[in-house]
Amino acid sequence: MSGRGVSAAIHPDWLVPDWELPASWPQVRAFMTTRAGGVSQGRHASMNVGRAVEDDPAAVAANRAHVDEVLGAPAVFLHQIHGADVLELAPMHLQGERPKADASFSTIRGLGCAIQVADCLPVLFVAPGVVGGAHAGWRGLAAGVLENTVHEISRAAGCEASELRAWLGPCIGPQRFEVGAEVLVACGADPASPDPAFFTYRTNERGEDRWLANLPALARQRLQEAGLSHISGGRWCTLSEPSRFFSFRHEPLAGRMVGAITLV
């Protein structure tokens, strides 16, 4: 399957992974959209790629087409269900209903992975000749979506997990992600004495005692335990910057962003 030739320029407000790849690896193109650079209006302004947030379908289609144009390849959007299934992409996945999975990888030049988020953590991966992405909210993390993705990409690339590069995109940050004790339990923490690197306890502005979860730190821990040492990103909070990022907790129907990656 061939690509689409020269890609359009990445919008200056979008995020680009800062990984350093060996010169011998195939080139990749990867980015993470923000709210900027699209055609949607109102609360969806402007780069909304979500179809289930009551946006104008024509605007969503135009925004997704622009993602493909910038990527230089068609990107496969998934029906994400907060699970741990990983899909190996094939051209057939560009047709018909979206495949149900929360991670994907591609070994085909010109066929891109797309991970849709609005507070959950998007993680993009590169290995020799393989790219991938995972949708990692707390449910997906607890279910093992990152470990499964690392395993599948390592297998497809024929390499050790330590060779993979991972980049963490914007998600709800550790000062804003309020959770219940069930999240600690699901992530393997003891609510009586959790590691403060991952969970802290405080009273919020409404006078409620709540746990705060550090989603990027939890993801880094799982990736490191899976064998990765090249991990970057994870510095942006979607809920703290609603003018730049879509945030489900700020406005559930405001819109969705996408992390996209393909082999060039």
Rank of each mutant, 00 (worst) to 15 (best):
V117M: 11
E54L: 15
A36Y: 09
A166G: 02
T262M: 01
G144Y: 04
C113M: 03
A226N: 06
G188V: 05
A136S: 07
L168G: 03
A52N: 15
P194E: 13
R64V: 12
V67I: 10
A9H: 10
I172W: 09
M257S: 09
E69T: 09
S154I: 00
F125N: 00
A59E: 14
E69M: 13
E241Y: 09
L124A: 00
V264I: 15
S243T: 15
L212G: 02
V70S: 04
S106E: 02
C159I: 00
A142V: 03
R210M: 09
P91E: 06
R43S: 12
R249F: 14
N48M: 09
P170T: 05
L94H: 11
L94V: 08
W138K: 11
F199R: 06
A136E: 05
G72W: 01
Q175R: 14
H66A: 14
P196K: 09
L164T: 01
H151E: 11
E97H: 11
P174G: 12
T262P: 01
C187K: 08
F246Q: 03
M47L: 11
Q27M: 12
D195A: 05
A114C: 05
H135T: 01
R244M: 12
P12L: 08
F105L: 00
L212F: 11
N214R: 10
C159S: 04
P191Q: 06
P17Q: 00
E178A: 15
A52E: 15
E205F: 13
G112N: 04
Q95Y: 12
S2D: 13
A65Q: 12
G259N: 02
C171L: 14
V86T: 01
R222E: 08
W211G: 04
S243D: 15
E251W: 11
T34C: 08
C237L: 05
W19Y: 04
G110F: 03
L87D: 02
T107W: 03
A114W: 03
A254S: 13
